[in-house]
Design a protein around this nucleic acid. Sequence first.
RNA 1: GUUCCCGUAGCGAAAUCGGAUAUCGCAAUCGCCUCCUAAGCGAUAGGCUGUGGGUUCAAUUCCCGCCGGGAACGCCA
Length: 565
Amino acid sequence: MIDYKKIIADKLDVPVSREELTSMITETADDTFGDFALPCFRLARSMRMSPVAIAEKLAADFETDEHIVKAEAVNGYLNFFVNRLEMTWEVISDVFAARGHYGDSDIGAGKTVCIDYSSVNICKSFHIGHLSTTAIGSALYKIYSALGYRVVGINHLGDYGTQFGKMIVAFKLWGDRTIAEKEGVAELQRLYVKFHREEPSHPELTEQAREWFARIEKGDPEAQELFEFFKRVTLEEVMTIYDRLNVRFDSWNGESFFNDKMEGPLQLLRDKGLITESQGAQVVDLSEYDMPPCLLVKSDGSSLYATRDIAAAIWRKKEYDFDKCLYVVAYQQNLHFKQFFKVLDLAGFEWAKDLVHVAFGMVSLEDGAMSTRKGNVVLLKDVINKAVDKAGEIIEAKNPGLPNRDKVAEQVGVGAVLFSALENSRIKDIVFSYDRVLNFDGETSPYLQYTYARCNSILEKAGDYKSSCVPGDYRALDNPETLRLIKLIGSFPQTVLDAAAKYEPSLISALLIDIAQAFNRFYIAHRVISDNAAEQNARLQVVEATAAVLKRGLALLGIEAPDKM
RNA sequence: GUUCCCGUAGCGAAAUCGGAUAUCGCAAUCGCCUCCUAAGCGAUAGGCUGUGGGUUCAAUUCCCGCCGGGAACGCCA
């Protein structure tokens, strides 16, 4: 893509630095104002002229060339018109040259990013509250990979805690291996809930649970075996969900993995004089930084969440030597992350600045917060199944002869679910509603997939057309619909960079929606297949470029694009 | 109580480092398939961008106050 802002800036004679001038140049709000604009208001003081006069003078002095064909002053704005056909050609050839990887880059070459996301809790059901971290983390994984980074996806398993003692007691009293194998996590959860119901009237259960937990920690074979059984049952189930969502991990080191790795870090913090005793607990005082103290060791001597996270961060830095480590975790834990990042900073780890909490909003139900213990949850697999069923019904109604019907339904349904977690800024809270997830009209992933299929349909119909970098009759592309579409496609690579820099996959979602919308308007306004070969060739190139960018963009979000639907 | 986040049309959102007439979708009403997939496209309607100040040539955007909603705030994760 031609750097128009730089070209414009180089040609203007104004008393500000090149860099600042470039940053002052904006894209126009409307194509009729041209393509780029320089608001001249800020120049008024230093140039001692009115903005209107400045714009007029600059316009009069401006030397056009093959890239910038016109400069026009309008009410204090200096508007520039680029050579639109040249730009169109540039964008299309960039897309073709990338061979399906438009937007990829090598800016991350030699760098490593760790992404901690999804983090399954053993023995707990995987519900829609886990969708955001999974979808956002997975999308960031794919985005950073596309930018050349080595990415390490980490599933920080919730596989440690006293609740597993309770699980063993419950399982030994009321459980059955065959049933657990068959029913999976639902059965484990049922036992867990039963334990909590019985516990108040049977205090001995609490004591037994404590003993069993101690036995897990000591490596008692029976306890260990049962715990591994629970872990396997949970992971087998969640693995089928990950497979359907196209989510992958490189590490499954969770809480239990770090259980014997906390003493070193704790000793280091003590040696640095950071740890103080407070009400029987060991803490790092952070009052100087306007934060409550960070608790690291309980009064009974056991460790805490922050202790484990500190140990994990140190271990990851050693193991992966990351340039950045992202934690895709809900904003409820804002303080926790600020605290333990600060502790690592105080401990003198200069890489503490590379730890990033990628916070996202809460998911709640229409009738309030979800609660695993109350059984008030919507299981993710149910949502996926419903979405896939719905997609199947629509195919049945609209395109009954479609080959690979089931596969396409899966791609569309899963896409709709993933997209629901990726369409808005991640910080926004979400009130889950089946109506919204199962709506396949408008700004949704099925709409993107449909548009992609539409593109393919044209390309297929064009038959002997072969993509090539030979320009067609580009005059056929000189219209507002095509211009809009081309500009959006041209902005894709920068948007991928922005999405990575801001940890915000929704930037890509939003652009894809705009591209699909622009394409559909183009599609209605301009017939592609025609008797005019040169015109057809030019338009087919636009179609092919659109298809390529939609497919690539969806892939970065973890969503597949069926050729037909 | 303290700190942080969010308030844009009935609902869900967008708006680049502050820029031109605040965009898009859902829902509603009305149109468009002898024509490349109607999961589409068009049109109508829907707004004092929570509120009051301030800064600026220019504020949805930055600053302060207030109102409303959410979250966190020591032995859970």
